[in-house]
Design a protein around this nucleic acid. Structure first.
Lengths: 157, 157
DNA sequence: TACTGTGAGTTTGGATTTCCTACCCACTGG
DNA sequence: CCAGTGGGTAGGAAATCCAAACTCACAGTA
């Protein structure tokens, strides 16, 4: 998943996945968002092999999704924290988690529950900013913007 | 990414990614949601090698995310369409696409624009169903539910 | 009848990635 | 001095990916 597939539809989903779609990347981001940004915590909590973790961390830092900051000189120790771009990816994680809770588990064995400041449990909902309505498939119309690509595929081949 | 990492935090994000986190899976779902559910369209539009595509399709059908239905007998031809579970994954794709548009591109070269029935361009926003407020990192508190796992990691090791 | 094309895959063999175990280094606390 | 912890590397085995070729069934044309 290192690079976006070639000759494929140009798409920000593909681009985003090329960055964060590799195995463990989103789990790393999850832990970092939970405040667990140290190497060994990440190893324990994500289950990633140490070398893979080191590679992913470099990539995510390069991509501007994580920030690597020292929390101790002598011995030098670093901790990873989400940048603004990283934090803005959190809603994706939350939405995915809710999907997994709903479709892959019973409603009663969710491994994690998120509480919102409003006092209720967070049930995430993707809405249209303009009208506030929840997004439903039937309410959407897609408009490709790339010359040569129609809704159904490349027009010139 | 075939299976969820072992010894790692139990988590629906990990479970969901074990299903749809493999390379191309989400791009396949994107195309299927756009209505492009035929094998050769998927090959062209996702850029996936044919064998990988065949493997992914089987997996997604088994997982109940896609439905494989004949659209022609003689010759037998099949087409893939999203199930309800698949459609409910669409908001994740849309949120991810918006993130990619914002962070990986200029606002003026988005490859695809989605229009909402309300007449405006869709700008997706993840909100709290209870209070309707957009989800912000600072407003959330996570509560692990699994014995042995705290916020920062396994407590018993 | 033969000839060409299409849809939906499967097969093959090699190139990449990932995984896992072990090791290394710097330091700390006892 | 010793064991332990944080943050990595090294090396080979295992899994995955990829491109291209191949299959099979049928359709259209001539």
């Amino acid at each position: 998943m290192a690079a976006a597939p070639k000759n494929a539809r140009p798409c920000s989903i593909a681009d985003a996945l090329a960055l964060v779609g590799e195995k463990y990347s989103l789990l790393i981001l999850r832990e970092v968002c939970l405040g667990n940004g140290r190497f060994d915590q990440l190893v324990r909590n994500t289950g990633a092999p140490r070398d893979v973790l080191a590679t992913r961390l470099r990539r995510l830092v390069d991509a501007g999704i994580l920030d690597r900051r020292p929390y101790s000189e002598r011995p030098q120790r670093f901790e990873y924290r989400p940048t603004r771009a990283g934090l803005e990816l959190e809603p994706v994680l939350i939405t995915l988690m809710a999907w997994g809770d709903r479709h892959l588990r019973g409603d009663d064995d969710r491994p994690m529950v998120i509480e919102h400041v409003c006092g209720h449990e967070l049930v995430p909902e993707v809405t249209c900013r303009a009208c506030g309505a929840p997004v439903r498939h039937e309410d959407l119309t897609s408009h490709p913007q790339t010359p040569g690509w129609t809704l159904s595929g490349p027009s010139v081949a």
